[in-house]
Nucleic acid binder design. Structure first.
Length: 353
DNA sequence: TATGCGTGGTT
DNA sequence: TAACCAAGCAT
């Protein structure tokens, strides 16, 4: 164990650490929810989602009663929806196998769906159940700079980084230490323009001068995709939504029907007996996911009487308060539509500023 | 083991 | 604009 390293980090934490984040609590359930939300997601984005979540589901008992649809609704807009499905599955396991008490055993935590080594170690350590190192993006960046380790992303580098993290992580005040590392990573040892002047590792033989030349990684293959989206509205101000099939992007969320070719969209309209004369508006939305650049053309249809079409009567949702989880692009589409066609909505938006 | 998974943000 | 990153995990 490297005492000098950890003592320096812990001293910094005393005066500069983030000790008042909403999930700085003792409840392993709440710590778990926060750790899942924080996977690949920034603190500022998580805070409102976290507060709403623990307000709605304050404990494991309330969570275990929730349906997947309800959980997807509360997760709506946060992204990486597999995470909430795993929370749902884990809640069922905790309910049946652990009598609705969050497990204390590290291997038990690690075996829950959606929980890998870093998340298990963070939950376990923050809950006071163990004293383990983590290896998130912050810790990686600090260690790479401190030890001058290349930015290669292979299993060998990963192994070295885990060894280094375990090496510097103390067995006492472990919780404060790993929190401090993440705080330093996001506040001091930042990706661009790190503030070495105020870094606690400055006088500790940190090897950082400038980032080691990043290995020329294969060009990210971002695909440009056209998507054809249908926003079908009826005279009751309801919108037609379908559950997105498993295997698709955004599976289990709800959306207006969408297609990856205009031909398929048109044959769907024909099958549903929706006359193309009913089209009310058409506009474009740009939406980007990790490796896809999606140009969405949204076609708005208005049906005065939806008895003449073949759409199921079960799939209509109040436009002003859609009570199922929808992807961000559909939220964008609805906002554009409402701002153009609902005077009240426009006024509300203007009032809000 | 390289890739898919969402969204918001920076450079 | 395009590339890259953010409290990673599962396959």
């Amino acid at each position: 164990m490297s005492t000098e390293f950890s003592e320096s980090i812990l001293r910094w934490y005393e005066t500069n650490g983030r000790k008042k984040l909403p999930w700085k609590v003792k409840d392993p359930y709440k710590i778990w929810i926060s750790e899942i939300m924080l996977q690949q997601t920034q603190v500022a984005t998580v805070i409102p989602y976290y507060n709403k979540f623990v307000d709605t589901y304050p404990d494991l008992q309330s969570l275990s009663k929730a349906s997947l649809d309800e959980l997807i609704l509360i997760w709506s807009g946060l992204g990486y929806y597999r995470r909430i499905k795993n929370i749902f599955l884990a809640a069922q396991i905790i309910s049946k196998k652990y009598n609705n008490k969050f497990p204390k055993d590290y291997q038990a935590i690690l075996s829950l769906p959606g929980i890998g080594r870093t998340t298990a170690s963070a939950i376990s350590t923050f809950s006071g159940y163990s004293h383990r190192a983590i290896l998130d993006g912050n810790v990686k960046r600090i260690l790479r700079r401190y030890y001058n380790i290349s930015y290669e992303n292979n299993s060998k580098t990963e192994k070295i980084l885990w060894e280094k993290s375990t090496h510097v992580t103390p067995l006492k005040k472990t919780s404060q230490f790993i929190q401090a590392m993440m705080d330093i990573g996001s506040l001091v040892c930042t990706r661009s323009k790190p503030n070495c002047r105020i870094c606690p590792l400055r006088e500790l033989n940190c090897l950082y001068t400038e980032d080691v030349q990043k290995i020329s990684r294969s060009k990210k293959n971002v695909k440009k995709i056209n998507m054809y989206l249908l926003t079908v509205i009826n005279s009751l101000d309801e919108v037609y939504l379908e559950k997105i099939e498993s295997g698709m992007l955004w599976e289990n969320l709800y959306s207006g029907p969408f297609f990856y070719s205009a031909i398929k969209m048109n044959s769907w309209l024909k099958k549903m007996k929706i006359s193309t004369a009913k089209i009310k508006n058409k506009f474009e939305i740009k939406h980007r996911v990790t490796n896809k650049d999606i140009k969405i053309t949204n076609y708005v249809y208005f049906l005065k009487n939806n008895k003449n079409v073949s759409l199921s009567t079960e799939n209509w949702y109040n436009l002003a308060k859609i009570n199922v989880g929808i992807p961000k692009y559909f939220d964008k589409a609805i906002k554009v539509y409402r701002s153009e066609y609902e005077k009240d909505y426009v006024q509300k938006i203007e009032k809000r500023g």
